[in-house]
Amino acid sequence: MKRERFEDLAGTYGADLRRWPEAERAWAERLLAHAPELRSVLDEAAALDALLDASPAPWPSQALRDRVIAAAPRPSRVPALAGVASWAGVLSPAGWSRSGVAFGAGWAAAACAGVVAGMMLTQTLTADVQADAVLYQASLSALDDVDLLG
């Protein structure tokens, strides 16, 4: 009976006892120590294991790797705002509830975002005004040139 079970397991999982069900490994090792003739059962299983190992494994191409990595999650891109949120939490009174802290941090983050957006808008408007001035001056020069060239 024990021998039959040993043969079944070798036929199912192969010769490497590490692949066998964990609960039966110690038992199988003890049985093998008392009945060395069971080695031939393992040898037969090992022959098929070796053939299975001969099946070639493909290796991922660089293109496949690049495609997969390109779709991977990206780190968060708002570390500055996260810092502001933490800062707002630290300044919150000790008695505030957790949701209150989160609420305050949210407002602080939104305010910070507003400041950033305002600065960007100002820069854009300033750039527009500067561009207008340059064009105006260029048109003046062009007129002057026309005047001069007659």
Binding site: S55, A57, P58, W59, P60, L64, R65, V68, I69, A72, P73, R74, P75, S76
Partner: peptide, 27 residues
């Protein structure tokens, strides 16, 4: 770490899993 977008973890997971998945699918 991959869930947080850690690029080193992304590389490590690709190295660990992609060859296994490709071999499984090929067979």
């Amino acid at each position: 770490r991959v869930g947080r977008g850690d690029p080193a973890a992304v590389q490590a997971l690709v190295a660990r899993k992609l060859p296994r998945l490709l071999a499984l699918a090929q067979r």
